[in-house]
Each structure stands twice: as structure tokens, then as C-alpha cells.
């Protein structure tokens, strides 16, 4: 009976995928461009709504902003009309630069599919504060400070240094070459990290975290619940491990001599200390999974 039920459920909830039917839409774009001088103490604050943000750096003392507000609808006139429903602000108050796009007050629903596309080029040392919902962000080459507050948003972060604070729910993070003081609070967020360095403090709920440990020599301090944590390709002798696992599945490679101790009925402590360690994994996971992949795989 149980098996039958699971089978039925497996079919019913397998994959809610449908075919993507194609039709044509008219795309109307309002493009805004502006540049501002970068001064000491400048900070850029972006508040995106259904926005795709691309951010990169250059060696000029200016911050350049391109913002496209896009409305797509099969009827061009409707797309043009809806374009007016999404507004933007782009202003400098003191040293701070505020950029945002938003749906105008009183607009309940748009017939068109609306989105905003930001391209921001700025000096690497400019601190950035980015909020975004229902979109994506690609940020690269910043060297000072980055704060991200995202929901339903995919993040691609590359070559970042300095202080990085990320709050995210329902999104994916792909991080490559990030070195610094990193703090990530996430829920329902899947992460893939490579070439990480520095000190990472992570809180993850219902996420999947994959860390390429062949190139990441950071100190990871991860508190997780209902999350899956995968440590991939760990280099021999270069990490200290300390896991507290509460009702979690733990898979360890036989080549490494982990010490396991039962703290209470459902709680296990797993440790491995290497004198030559260059990084560490301190992980506490409840109702999840910790996997240390076989070496070199």
C-alpha cells in the first residue's frame, strides 16, 4: 500500500515541466544612461524589481549606469502603455548614488511582461549595496564591500574581495574566486563555490551547498538545517574538519581518518585535524546531509 502510494505520488509530483510554446511578442525598451563622478566615500545603492543586474569595474573614476526598462506584449501599443507603469530613480544624494526601478503606485497588474536590465560599470573600490527580487545579478571584480539582499534571484559572483554580506532566499548563488570576510544567510538557496578564500560564515536553510575544495582554502563556518553540503575534491591534509550532525546523513571518504563521537542519541561529532591545514570546515547540520567526496574526485 505504502509503495503503491509513493509510486502514485512519484508520478503525480515528478516534474512540473511543460513544453515551452513559442509565440512572438513586441518588445519595447526605454533606455536610460547616465554617469556620475566617483568620489571618496561614494556608495552605490541599487534596488531592483524583476531586474537583471550586470555589474563590472573599470579604472576610471566614474560610475556609468545603463538601465533598460522593457515591456513585452504581443500588442505593441499595449507594451508601450505598460512601459509607463514601471518607473525608475537615478539620483545622487551626498556621496551615495541611488538607483531603483519600481512599479508605479496604484498599478495592480500589467498586461505586458515587465523587466529591468541594469549595466553598471564602476571603480573596483566602490562599495555596492544591491537589492533585487525576481531577477538575477552578475557582479564581478569588486574589491571593497558588497551587500546583497535578494529574493527569487540568481546570483553570479566572480572575483570579489573585501567584505561581502549576502542575504538570499529562493535563489541560486554561483561564486568563483571570492576572498574576504564573507557572510551568507540563505534559505532555499543552492550554492556552488570555487576558489574561495578568507573567512566564510554561512547560515543555510533548505539549501544545497557545493564547495570545490581543491581550490578553496577558506575557513568555512556553516550552520545549516535541512541542507545538503558537499565538499568536493578536498586536497589531502589541507583542511581541518569539524562536523556536528543532527539526524543528518554523513558520507566520508575512507582515505581520511575521521574521528566520530556520539554526543546524544541523534547527534554525532566528526573531526579531523591536520597539522598542515590551510582551511577548515566547521559544519553544523540538522536533518540534512554532509558529504565529503573521495579525494581527487
Amino acid at each position: 500500500m505504502k509503495k503503491q502510494f509513493q509510486l502514485l505520488l512519484g508520478f503525480a509530483l515528478l516534474l512540473p515541466l511543460g513544453a515551452f510554446a513559442q509565440k512572438t511578442v513586441e518588445v519595447v525598451t526605454k533606455s536610460i544612461q547616465k554617469s556620475m563622478p566617483f568620489e571618496i566615500g561614494s556608495e552605490i545603492i541599487i534596488d531592483g524589481q524583476k531586474a537583471d543586474v550586470y555589474m563590472s569595474t573599470w579604472d576610471k573614476n566614474r560610475i556609468a549606469v545603463y538601465l533598460d526598462i522593457v515591456a513585452s506584449h504581443p500588442d505593441k501599443a499595449q507594451a508601450e502603455a505598460d512601459l509607463e507603469n514601471m518607473d525608475y530613480e537615478l539620483e545622487k544624494k551626498g556621496a551615495k548614488i541611488y538607483i531603483k526601478n519600481f512599479v508605479k503606485d496604484g498599478v495592480e497588474k500589467t498586461a505586458s511582461q515587465m523587466e529591468a536590465k541594469y549595466t553598471i560599470i564602476l571603480p573596483a573600490s566602490c562599495p555596492v549595496n544591491l537589492s533585487n527580487v525576481f531577477g538575477s545579478a552578475q557582479v564581478r571584480d569588486l574589491s571593497n564591500a558588497l551587500v546583497v539582499d535578494a529574493a527569487y534571484c540568481t546570483l553570479k559572483l566572480t572575483n570579489l574581495r573585501g567584505r561581502i554580506d549576502i542575504n538570499t532566499s529562493f535563489g541560486d548563488i554561483e561564486g568563483h574566486d571570492i576572498v574576504g570576510q564573507v557572510s551568507i544567510n540563505s534559505s532555499w538557496t543552492d550554492m556552488k563555490l570555487s576558489q574561495a578564500g578568507g573567512d566564510w560564515k554561512m547560515n543555510s536553510s533548505q539549501g544545497v551547498i557545493k564547495i570545490d575544495a581543491s581550490s578553496s582554502f577558506a575557513n568555512f563556518d556553516i550552520t545549516a538545517d535541512q541542507s545538503e553540503i558537499y565538499i568536493e575534491k578536498p586536497a589531502v591534509g589541507l583542511f581541518n574538519y569539524e562536523f556536528i550532525s543532527s539526524l543528518s546523513e554523513v558520507n566520508l571518504p575512507q582515505e581520511l581518518q575521521f574521528q566520530q563521537r556520539t554526543i546524544s542519541q541523534n547527534v554525532q561529532e566528526i573531526k579531523l585535524v591536520s597539522p598542515s591545514a590551510k582551511g577548515s570546515f566547521r559544519i553544523k547540520n540538522d536533518y540534512g546531509k554532509i558529504v565529503v567526496f573521495p579525494l581527487g574526485n
Partner: peptide, 18 residues
């Protein structure tokens, strides 16, 4: 430094979701 605003038009394939 001046804000420049322009408009453009295009036709693209749309996707209907699941």
C-alpha cells in the same frame, strides 16, 4: 553626466511556461 533617455523596439520569441 546628463540623463539620456531613449526608446527602441524589437520583436522576440515569447515563452509560455509550464
Amino acid at each position: 553626466s546628463k540623463e539620456i533617455v531613449s526608446f527602441s523596439y524589437d520583436t522576440q520569441a515569447a515563452f509560455e511556461g509550464e
